[in-house]
Design a protein around this nucleic acid. Sequence first.
RNA 1: CGGGGCGUGGCGCAGCCUGGUAAGCGCACCUGCUUUGGGAGCAGGGGGUCGGAGGUUCAAAUCCUCUCGCCCCGACCA
Length: 479
Amino acid sequence: MKEKKVRITERSEDFSRWYTDVIAAAKLADHSPVKGCMVIRPEGYAIWESIQGVLDGMFKATGHKNAYFPLLIPESFLKREAEHVEGFAPECAVVTRGGGEELEEPLVIRPTSETIIWHMYKKWIMSFRDLPLLINQWCNVVRWEMRTRLFLRTTEFLWQEGHTAHATFEDAEEETLKILEIYRTFAEDYLAIPVISGRKSDREKFAGALHTYCIEAMMQDKRALQAGTSHNLGTNFARAFDVTFQDTDGKVKDVWATSWGVSTRLIGALIMTHSDDSGLVLPPNIAPVKMTVIPIFKTEDEKSKLMEYLDPVLKGLDPEITYHVDVRDNVRVGWKFTDFERSGVPLRLEAGPRDLKEKKVVLVRRDTGDKEFVPASGAASRIKETLADIQKSLFERALGLREANTHGARTLDEFKDTLEEKGGFILAGWCGSGECEERVKEETKATIRCLPFDAEQDEGECLVCREKSPQAAVFAKAY
RNA sequence: CGGGGCGUGGCGCAGCCUGGUAAGCGCACCUGCUUUGGGAGCAGGGGGUCGGAGGUUCAAAUCCUCUCGCCCCGACCA
């Protein structure tokens, strides 16, 4: 075969070029004229809409309501919470002019909305009866990052941010963990991305949080990607914005806060978890289109006979099995097959004159490439089964990769050797000190991804200082 | 901000060192014919004042100065 123009670099050759090639080939996104920003193209945006649809349903089912807070925030708001300023000030874009004049107070384009939201919550929360307040918003935020990559880190990105207010620490903690569990379920059941749930170290936690929980995933290059975070903000923001409520005992108390979010980064996670050298691979549960139908014809007559033949098959499908019929007659089938592979659609159905004669259709799985000839009459149920199987096997394959690339280390030397030779996640003892954490980072570039909930309570010792380790930590090089 | 690289039809590049009279190649696009079960072939065709501004010269994509922008590698991060 002749060298193709829009060739996808192989993963083994250059993983990050492969990543950008897959995005280009699947038409998910493009670079904007403004540095670090991305244009999300229809194919990419459809995935985001699919993510939104499922998560939004999960949030609403747990009592959350959507609202919208404005893009522009008075600069002084950011300064109200000490850690928050420190964390976000350097990466804020600031508007200083408007209507042709210098503004009296510069306006920050939100990097996250805690401050504006808590400013409003002060007005809305008076009594214990106003709690809990459970609000989510879908929006864009801007963070002036130094280095950007499509979907993984862009100057502007889309996300949802939940902001809740509670009467007690326990309530806030319960909310924080409930959301984390929603994220875990979503990642595993829909995105087919196995994740490790856990708590962030103090060094890695959100600026202004009491503590941060997260889900961490392993990409195909064995690096870690944070896929979602849920923060217990304690009373830090309530105090910074003077939000109090009068409790049943008549006393005025601080309000407890949480915030949590996932972003368009999830699309990057999807790509790097499942896709292959032929292009995008999407799990059926999140794929906007589940199946591409390719009729193989030479003449108009053949085409209409095939469409007639396929009609009952397609009508017999469950309504959630969305499909696209590629009826283009200006490209040949080879072209359509390649388009299918790049687009990430989980399943392909082909039917040509030969299949028509034999009363069959051909099903081809995107994940394995397996080809199956099935009788047209039983196709609908076989399609459903196959999609379910693709979903399952994508998850298992990703889990297998993570398990095969998760290692232990008792000493820093062993840690370094393992990281260098094998890469992946390293489960090791950690005393809890920032110094030891920093030392690992400096010497290996690996960071603590999280303190996993399900790690065995380890009586071991810290791999750096040999002090007692209360709990094992997952270390990895991260995106 | 430190180090490297690059701006030439829609995209990817060559030409620049050694200025010289055709601005070229591949892909894409348009037209026609033949093709059509894994990115077709042939023929014809349209499209670029070479990032911008100055300068040197008889002559600048090419040399000089300034400027704008982008990409890659490091410190920050969902």
